[in-house]
Design a binder for these strands. Sequence first.
DNA 1: GGCTTGACCTAACAAACGTTAGACAGTCTA
DNA 2: TAGACTGTCTAACGTTTGTTAGGTCAAGCC
Lengths: 207, 207
Amino acid sequence: MTAGEIVDDTASGGTRSGEKSRRDILDAAARILRRRGYHATTLRTIADAVGIKAGSIYYHFASKDEIIAAVMNDGVDAVHRAVTEALAGLAANASLEERLETAIRAHLHALLEFGDYTSAGLNAYSEAPEPVRDAARPHRLAYEAIWDRLAEEIVAAGATGAGVSARSLKLALLGMMNWSPEWYRPERHRVDDLAREFTALVLARRG
Amino acid sequence: MTAGEIVDDTASGGTRSGEKSRRDILDAAARILRRRGYHATTLRTIADAVGIKAGSIYYHFASKDEIIAAVMNDGVDAVHRAVTEALAGLAANASLEERLETAIRAHLHALLEFGDYTSAGLNAYSEAPEPVRDAARPHRLAYEAIWDRLAEEIVAAGATGAGVSARSLKLALLGMMNWSPEWYRPERHRVDDLAREFTALVLARRG
DNA sequence: GGCTTGACCTAACAAACGTTAGACAGTCTA
DNA sequence: TAGACTGTCTAACGTTTGTTAGGTCAAGCC
């Protein structure tokens, strides 16, 4: 089952004629991957959702794993871009609290609302075969660097509890955010509220 | 694929002769389920790990899903018990901070060190078929009640950031704890340290 | 009109899946 | 010692999986 490497072609450009089908396949794969996980995401299920036959997928992709890897990495890159842009949109003198809340809000929005690709990546990562995880790792690390820097700033400013390391702060933040697909219900929660509460929780201080 | 209900017999007692094999099967299933997820956990893989043949499993269990459900529910019940006992072991006048840190420490220990059953439950829940999830839900809710109460106490005491609801506090706590299997490495982290940092993070206050 | 190419289909392949039926050796009980 | 029960095995079943080979048909170019 695909022993070789997985090529990362998410940046390949051009708007060829078959580009739509390719995107349709990825969209369907992301939707199914998010809810059912790696092994339950079959080529026939994907094909059904797109309206083509399973064999036809191989015109666009070389293997199942290439699809999965593309979805996962597109997902991470999308959150990365969303958070980066949200932070870039802030005033230069924005407070630390403002920047943390903005980053959390952007992450949660990407994860919970535009989130098929994003949470597919979270949901399938641990059960995907090694080559897929290998292909995903650089994307994940690149994104986490944002939170490394934020966490270090927060700790350096003494804005959180005593004895909390930047590393633990980052892991705690990613944990509370990335666990949210488990309980989030659009009719019960508002992302902006959650972002504000998570920020207040971490930066808690007594007046 | 197993449309019926899943009987919850985790409490069935007695030490029959075949009890060891039964426990061996569950142990192996938990170990594999934890790392590979629901669909990659096959009866033949389990049987190989135990040293028997796949068909023999049906002497002890009626279906694959019965095994999975037993593992998941045993896991949740184990954390439930661990946290309950840790809290019960505290002095009656233990501070809120002491109790929170104790609960977090017990949860993380159960999850990260005795954790095949426990993190198998977390890892496989979202991709397991509906009947399995239905069987698991009461166990999860019963355990979460502990954290509901703790979170409410913390909020009522004003010991966390302003505007943080008890519900969000609970979800954030479960998130940062339950995400830890993603990054925890025994050679790099000490559970007791993590528990102290997570507690300080949530109860942060400025001197 | 011929020829190429792009995008799909049909039909099959070997392998792996959960599950079952029936046989068999060992142990316990009467 | 006969018979029942335990725990396992062998061997197959029907289905589903990822994947492949080869065919079809319309659109575009010469």
